[in-house]
Amino acid sequence: MDSRAVITARTGTPPGTAVPVLPACWREELPGVLGELAEAWRDPAAWSGMTRAGGVDLPGSVAAVVAADELVVHGWDLARATGLEYVPDPAALRASYGFLREAAQDAGRGGGIFGAVVSVPEGAPLLERAIGLSGRDPAWTPPSP
């Protein structure tokens, strides 16, 4: 498959349409891919114009916030599931929290990409509040083996 077809498959496929097939070496490749993502967002042009992700066309500035949210929330998922400490980038956390707070006000939110909001005290750390807005319980821990 040529690189253009791979890019189209990654950006044009709506969530839930297909489960991605991860290569066996995904753990080794992840740091490099995340570095490429960070490098791409360092270019001011990435923040303007339109782009496509998950089968949806959206402004570059919105895509940046969505990318930050993905990293914060799924970074928490991985850290929590593996018992590792997690301290996200403060700017990415603030962007994620703002995005999730706005999404939480969507009246039809019960399902879709986010679950129902998990109530978290207003004075809780920002990460816990963001995780609750994402539909996750910030107190969750994996079951004991």
Rank of each mutant, 00 (worst) to 15 (best):
P15G: 01
P15N: 08
P15R: 10
G16M: 07
T17P: 15
A18M: 15
A18L: 15
P20Q: 09
V21E: 14
V21N: 14
L22I: 11
L22E: 06
L22T: 10
P23K: 04
P23D: 04
P23Y: 01
P23E: 05
P23I: 08
A24S: 12
A24D: 13
A24Q: 07
C25Y: 13
W26V: 15
R27M: 15
E28I: 15
E29L: 15
E29T: 15
L30I: 11
L30S: 14
V33T: 06
L34E: 03
L34M: 10
L34I: 02
G35P: 13
G35H: 09
G35F: 07
G35M: 01
E36Q: 12
L37A: 00
A38M: 03
A40K: 10
W41Y: 09
W41R: 06
D43Q: 01
D43V: 00
P44D: 00
P44F: 00
A45T: 07
W47L: 10
W47Y: 06
W47C: 03
S48K: 13
S48T: 15
G49C: 07
M50C: 03
R52G: 06
R52N: 02
G54C: 03
G54V: 07
G54S: 01
G54L: 02
D57A: 11
L58Q: 03
L58R: 01
L58H: 00
P59T: 12
G60S: 01
G60F: 00
S61V: 14
S61N: 11
A64S: 01
A64P: 12
V65A: 02
V65D: 01
A67F: 10
A67S: 13
A67N: 09
A68H: 09
D69R: 14
E70Y: 04
L71N: 05
L71R: 10
V72N: 08
V72K: 13
V72F: 14
V73W: 03
V73N: 02
H74Q: 04
G75C: 07
G75T: 11
G75A: 05
W76Q: 04
D77E: 05
D77P: 13
L78P: 01
L78E: 08
A79C: 08
A79G: 06
R80C: 10
R80E: 02
A81D: 09
A81G: 14
A81Y: 10
T82H: 10
L84T: 11
L84E: 14
E85N: 05
E85Q: 09
E85H: 11
Y86T: 08
V87R: 14
V87F: 05
V87T: 13
P88H: 10
D89L: 10
P90C: 12
P90G: 06
A91D: 12
A91T: 12
A92P: 07
R94Q: 09
A95R: 15
A95Y: 11
Y97E: 10
Y97F: 14
G98Y: 07
G98Q: 06
R101N: 12
E102D: 13
A103H: 05
A104H: 06
Q105T: 13
Q105N: 10
D106S: 13
D106H: 11
A107P: 10
G108K: 08
G108T: 09
G108S: 08
R109H: 04
R109W: 01
G110N: 06
G111C: 04
I113M: 08
I113T: 02
V118P: 00
V118I: 05
V118A: 00
S119M: 06
V120L: 00
V120R: 01
P121A: 00
